[in-house]
Design a binder for these strands. Structure first.
Length: 162
DNA sequence: GCCAACGTTGGC
DNA sequence: GCCAACGTTGGC
């Protein structure tokens, strides 16, 4: 396949640390600090132009705040060998990097956050990894079906008064 | 601030 | 390789 279909993902960020507005201000932001193997492995599968739901977690109204895209594929997360970084990991080094990151740019900030509660109410999203009990994964795949269901939901909710 | 769920660590 | 202890995530 010369041109493979884009894949879709969801990535969580705490808006106090890095919000959708921060991403809007800084195209090609490195997504550093992922220190979970499953999440890292998903990032390694990401391709340029893949779509990403930007999710705000650990905040007042958790939910999807907008869409981003991958602008650079996985490369070593250098914050892992920076002793001054919060994400410093003694087991990672430039010679033997353990953690990867990707770069992202914002595509669109949504005028209304599609909240976790909105998503939970949507029958078509049953089985979505994000909605599973105890799910703490910060990077996860989104199927094409789920992606389009969520876009439809977003269009419905955005055209309605709150 | 609480706590359930989960991942990681380290002793054995 | 098991598993208890511990730390972290993230919704509420």
């Amino acid at each position: 396949m010369a041109h493979s279909e884009p894949q879709y993902w969801l990535m969580k960020s705490e808006p106090d640390a890095f919000s959708v507005d921060d991403l809007a201000k800084k195209p090609n932001s490195p997504w550093d600090g992922v220190r979970n193997y499953q999440a890292r492995n998903f990032m390694r599968q990401m391709k340029k132009e893949d779509g990403v739901f930007f999710y705000h977690s650990s905040c007042k109204i958790p939910g999807i705040a907008g869409i981003a895209k991958i602008t650079r594929e996985a490369y070593p997360d250098f914050t892992a060998w920076d002793p001054k970084s919060d994400y410093f990991d003694t087991k990672s080094s430039p010679e033997n990097p353990r953690w990867d990151m990707v770069d992202l740019s914002l595509v669109e900030k949504w005028t209304r956050v599609i909240t976790l509660a909105d998503l939970k109410k949507t029958e078509a999203l049953e089985g979505f990894q994000l909605l599973k009990k105890g799910n703490r994964l910060s990077v996860m795949p989104v199927s094409h079906e789920q992606w389009h269901h969520i876009l439809t939901l977003k269009n419905q909710l955005t055209s309605q008064p709150l």
